[in-house]
Amino acid sequence: MNGLSQSGLLVQQIGYQNKMFYRTPISAFFTLVFPLMLLVLFGALFGSERINELGVTVAQYFAPALAVFSAASATYTNISVGTAFQRDMGILKRIKGSPLPPWLFFAGKVGSATIVAAVAMLIMMSVGVLAYGVTIFPRTLPAAILTFLVGAACFACMGLLVAAVSPTGNAATAIANATLLPLAFLSGLFFPTTSETPQWLVTVGDIFPLKHFNDAFQATFLPNTTGAQFDWFALGYMALWGVVSLLLALRLFTWEPRSGD
């Protein structure tokens, strides 16, 4: 029997990582279910209120924002934590001893996490449309899809970087949560930033890609806009973060368990 081709291997690696995700109930819960619970919670708390500065309903704002949160969790958190724990267990070392080219392993992780993020986003937006009357604009759909894919891939690469620098799985869990949650707050994922938000918070938010991801994706669901709503600056900024993270991750990545704890 002959070996698989490169594309065959890529498909196999993506399928493998997908299986790992759906068979790990805790990560599937936090990525797919938990953000939906937040949507239901925000819906129940703020129901028919409108966000005055944007002129939209609470659901019209939070469905895309929570889809972005799902995407970050599906990519950044799951890749960093999952990979670091696989290293602790010696799974990465075993894979390193096989002839699988490393880039295919990373591509499998990024590809699979991006697909999971897309599934989470589709679930979130479907619930938004069906249960909370969220409106979708065909005019901005291409921008929404492109923004989402670039954002998810960017956070997947950042997840690889956290996996590379974390000595253990526990450390990766701590780093991922301690960075994603505060950033989600100050990037407007859990409440909109307003004119009263302190300047330094706005500045910190501007540095990291999450706010650009949220703002650009968000913009494709606002009613009072014109045009296709491609935010080229945000797309470029996320791509830059993604590429730099990926290059650093490839440099710093180790396959052997590191002593720790």
């Binding site: 029997m1 002959n2 070996g3 698989l4 065959g8 291997l9 196999q12 690696q13 493998y16 075993r94 894979i95 096989s98 002839p99 699988l100 080219p101 295919l104």
Partner: peptide, 12 residues
């Protein structure tokens, strides 16, 4: 199957 994917010779 997954571990075996990248080998050029592949035992059943």
């Amino acid at each position: 199957n997954i571990h075996g994917g990248a080998y050029s010779r592949r035992r059943n």
